[in-house]
Nucleic acid binder design. Structure first.
Lengths: 224, 224
DNA sequence: TTGCTTATGATAGTAATACTATTATATTTG
DNA sequence: CAAATATAATAGTATTACTATCATAAGCAA
């Protein structure tokens, strides 16, 4: 079977020069994913990245104007990829209920590699999103960046899943709150399982996180 | 009516010298709360704090070994205060159901000033916790800090509310996941209302956040 | 071939940050 | 009054997150 020849398109305010357009650009993306995960975002620097790919710091700056912008780009790429899986997974489902099931599944399941995108390791990228994405939201610049559409994809995913919820129960009052609670909650649980196991429920594995949130949504919207 | 003469006790690994023990210490706490909220944690520095209270940077370092430690201290203070409200609010409630109601209320309600603690503005501190506390969790040092008991209070709150949930429904399988989902979700919603209103449900106010999470918990544990 | 453009490399420099260290002075306590 | 303690004043350092400049190499167009 062939892979679908697709490319994820990112808001061009999120880079100086499109990293998908050159070899060096792709190296920057793939190596920065590895390095941010390895060092954590604070210890990650363009200098270290440059050393890792054998290019000077200044070359990296030709693609991203700051390490903050690079992180926003990566997170945006991640959510665009999730959106693609979401749309792909829910299209052609017969019932709204089944659509919702699949959607929650996709938002809460463990990540697997997607070989359609060679320079991106989605498994590691997911860890970065879990660990670092709040740093992108919680900045004094958030309102300006929101204006520029940096969070458009994230908001669109919330919207899409909310719409499915309303198909199942048109009277449910808080679909957006419910969806964002599940999206963030699932990531948070992944983090807790790894680092604060005492506040997760014993013998926890990712299956249970999925089960928990699926059950939660269905009960809350009275679809069970 | 008199205030209760109480003091919140913080793990002594969270400071070099107890800030509650001196005037300068208390000034450091109250001014840093204001400044972190005003500037955001990244732009906040001990130098600026020093200027604001008329003391040199080096004096601040005698209380906290780093700005990270100060933030952990503040967040820990906040959760200790919440725990105190939680224990106070649930004691002497007749039914477990009512206890749970109060507990969720406390975890999701908007914050009011508590004049028992003069040098702490809880309303501003709550904003800091909402905006910055993930930065405390998402560090490479988290496992070491967890070992030192930095997150003990947070975990204890999860435990307390989980216990109440189990009183209401002893068969519920995931009380910890549910509680941490609510705790983090409520903060997240407060943030979204302010900064990403498009993904909150129209005409949202904090009352609705409380209503949403109370309803969510009761339904999920089959108590409704 | 020459010339032009574009991508990258090599190197230097800067203001700010997050601390550390040292010495002096004021205050408290025994 | 001496000794201990708390704070002030000041200086210094390695690192960070950039910015700037100039040289070189590759690609293509006439």
């Amino acid at each position: 079977m062939h892979q679908l020849p697709i490319q994820i398109i990112i808001n061009d305010g999120l880079f100086v020069k499109d990293p998908e357009s050159t070899d060096l650009g792709k190296k920057i993306i793939s190596k920065s994913i590895e390095l941010i995960e390895e060092l954590g975002f604070e210890a990650f620097t363009f200098k270290k990245l440059g050393q890792a790919i054998g290019s000077p710091e200044s070359s990296v700056y030709r693609y991203f104007e700051s390490k903050h912008q690079l992180l926003v780009y990566l997170i945006c790429w991640y959510w665009s990829w999730v959106e693609y899986k979401l749309v792909f997974g829910t299209v052609n489902q017969q019932s709204s209920h089944e659509k919702l099931n699949v959607a929650i599944q996709i938002l809460t399941e463990p990540i697997h590699m997607d070989y359609s995108f060679e320079h991106v390791n989605e498994v590691i990228l997911n860890k970065i999103v879990v660990a670092e994405s709040t740093k992108v939201f919680h900045t004094k610049k958030i309102d300006a960046e929101n204006q520029l559409g940096y969070f458009a994809v994230y908001k669109r995913i919330v919207q899409r899943v909310s719409d499915i919820i309303l198909e199942v129960n048109p009277d449910f009052k808080y679909p957006n709150m419910l969806v964002s609670t599940v999206m963030e909650g699932a990531h948070q649980q992944a983090f807790f399982v790894e680092h604060l196991p005492t506040i997760t429920d014993q013998a926890e594995c990712t299956d249970q996180v999925q089960e928990f949130y699926t059950n939660l949504v269905m009960k809350v919207i009275d679809a069970i």
